[in-house]
């Protein structure tokens, strides 16, 4: 997957959870939980959304490595390649 496709998948997953959020205004290093007020259920749904769109299964212990859009893209890029 290209990095644009990964970004689209991340943003679409976030959009499912927080439809009212202004995702365009979200900086790559904004903390997702703080900015979008995500709770653990939201975050689980975010991980499920990513899995559905990219096929990448993020194990629980790696959740903390997807704290921002930038971090999530880096993580996914590494795991999509591998």
């Amino acid at each position: 997957m290209t990095s644009d496709e990964l970004r689209a998948a991340v943003l679409a997953s976030l959009g499912d959870i927080a439809p009212e959020a202004d995702l365009a205004g979200l900086a790559d290093d904004d903390d997702l939980r703080d900015e979008l007020d995500l709770d653990s259920m939201d975050f689980l749904n975010f991980i499920i959304g990513i899995h559905e769109r990219t096929g990448i299964d993020v194990p629980e212990r790696d959740y903390s490595r997807l704290g921002t859009v930038g971090a999530a893209l880096a993580y996914l890029a590494a795991h999509a390649a591998g």
Binding site: S40, M41, L44, I48, H51, D57, V58, E60, R61
Partner: peptide
Amino acid sequence: LERENLTRPVAERVLPA
């Protein structure tokens, strides 16, 4: 729970809640 979730597909993971 961590051990349980290792065996579960992402959509079936259980939250501490």
